[in-house]
């Protein structure tokens, strides 16, 4: 499938992936993140069930201290 991840196009062999699987494949290990699929907020307790499919717009935004 082809998705948009953080405003960039990204291809995966799989047709469906959960957020947890994408985090593992992309080596995203940050403790705190904001995740959105097609603009909808996905909270941490739903990472293992929320599914991403071809054409989806996914945002995985790392929360970084500093300001």
């Amino acid at each position: 499938m082809n998705i948009s991840l953080n405003n960039r196009s990204e291809s995966f062999e799989q047709d469906v992936l959960t957020i947890s699987e994408i985090l593992r494949l992309k080596n995203f290990t940050f403790k705190m993140m904001v995740v959105k699929i097609n603009g909808k907020l996905i909270k941490k307790d739903r990472y293992t069930e929320a599914e991403v499919r071809d054409g989806d717009d996914v945002q995985i935004i790392h929360m970084i201290s500093g300001g």
């Binding site: 403790k31 705190m32 993140m33 904001v34 959105k36 907020l41 909270k43 935004i61 929360m63 970084i64 201290s65 500093g66 300001g67």
Partner: peptide, 16 residues
């Protein structure tokens, strides 16, 4: 304009 990551998370989730 917070400094701590957990405050940034709380802010973004609250507004969303």
């Amino acid at each position: 304009a917070f400094d701590k990551a957990e405050m940034k998370l709380m802010m973004i989730e609250t507004i969303c």
